[in-house]
Amino acid sequence: MGRRRVMMLIDMNSCVGCMACVVACIRENIARQNRGDVEIPEDAVYHARTKPEYAGMELGLTGDIPIFIQCQHCDNPPCEMVCPTGATYIDEDGVVALDHGKCVGCRACIAACPYGARTIYRRPLAGEPLSGGEGFQPGYPDKCTFCRHRKRGEGLWTPACIEACAFGARLFGYEEDVIESSEGRAVRLLEALGTEPKVLYILPVKGRR
C-alpha cells in the first residue's frame, strides 16, 4: 500500500448549483471540439460525469438535500466486482477506471452501481474529446475518472470540475488530507452497502447556528 490515494470532497453548503463543474466536465470528457463544429451528445447533462440533482425535495426520500450523481470511486466498487474481463479496475491512485480495450459491453457494471454513476450512449459521435481515450466513447459505459488523464508524472492533478468551481465547493486531494479537511463533518452516500466511497459530502447546515 505504498501509494497515496486520491479523494474528493463536495461541500453542499458552498455549492450553489451553478453547473460550472458539469459544463466543464462535458467540455473535458464528453463533447468533441471538431473543426468548425462541436459535437455534444443529446442530453449532455445526463451524460455528464457529475451532475447535481435538487429534485430530492419533491421526492421525500432525500429531503431537500441535493446530491451529485457521479462515480463515488468506491474502495469496494460493486462495478469492479461484477466486471467479467477486468476492464473496470482500481488504479494505483485509487481511481476506479475503465479500460475500454477490455470492455466486452455486458453492462453488468451499470446494473451493479448503486449510485447511478454509469451511463451509456449508443449513437455515433464524431471526433475525440479533450480527454482522449479516457473520454466519453459511444457504446461503452461511461463514468467519472477524476480526470486522471490530466495527471503528469507523479503527484496530484486537478480534475476539470475542481478547476471550474469558483465557490470552493469541491476539494480534491490525497485521502488523509481530504479527510482532515473535512473535520469529521463529511458523510458518504449509501454507507450501509459497504462500498466505501472516496467522494465525501458535507451536507447543508440548516437552522440556528
Binding site: 470532497l9 461541500d11 453548503n13 490530466r150 496530484l156 492533478w157 486537478t158 475542481i162 478547476e163 468551481c165 470552493g168 469541491r170 476539494l171 480534491f172 486531494g173 490525497y174 488523509e176 488530507d177 481530504v178 482532515e180 479537511s181 473535512s182 473535520e183 469529521g184 463533518r185 458535507i202 451536507l203 447546515v205 437552522g207 447556528r209
Partner: peptide, 21 residues
C-alpha cells in the same frame, strides 16, 4: 458536528483549488 461553523477546507497537501493546471 452538523452545527460546527464551516471553515474553508485546509490541508497542506491538498491541491490548491485555484492553481492553473
Amino acid at each position: 458536528a452538523l452545527h460546527t461553523p464551516i471553515e474553508k477546507p485546509r490541508g497542506k497537501q491538498v491541491q490548491a483549488i485555484y492553481s492553473l493546471q
